[in-house]
């Protein structure tokens, strides 16, 4: 029995471990090797508000004209720091005859640089 254990230990020593400090018992257990870690995350727009002030849809969703959220329906910030769906605010800006204002604060609409 002892012989067997020693044999095994020597095998392990030659194959995997060169760390002399580990005691005998610990040889039987090797730290788990993680071969793959598949994590899950959700993305969110880094905006203060939850919903778009124009279409009242969630920022993390998309504007009524879009099918896919995210890259296809981005947010845009104005100089006043209000955020809207790009499509929503563009529609708004284009519909204004003169200078467009931010729908939230009535300031002149400027895209944030």
């Amino acid at each position: 029995m002892l012989l067997f254990l020693v044999n095994n230990v020597t095998k392990f020593e030659t194959s995997n471990f060169s760390d002399e400090n580990l005691d005998l018992i610990s040889f039987c257990y090797v730290p788990p090797i993680c071969t793959e870690w598949h994590a899950v995350a959700s993305w969110t727009w880094d905006a203060q508000d939850e919903t778009c002030g124009i279409c009242r849809m969630a920022f993390d969703g998309c504007c009524p004209d879009c099918k896919l959220p995210g890259d296809d329906c981005p947010l845009i910030w104005g100089a006043c720091n209000h955020a809207f769906h790009l499509h929503c605010i563009l529609k708004w800006v284009n519909s204004q005859t003169s200078q467009a204002h931010c729908p939230m604060c009535r300031r002149e609409w400027q895209f944030k640089e």
Partner: peptide
């Protein structure tokens, strides 16, 4: 302008335990 929120408890991990 987008950021990630981790769902730490979700996902899969493949581990290899050596005996």
């Amino acid at each position: 302008p987008r950021k990630l929120l981790w769902k730490q408890n979700l996902g899969t991990v493949k581990l290899e335990l050596q005996f």
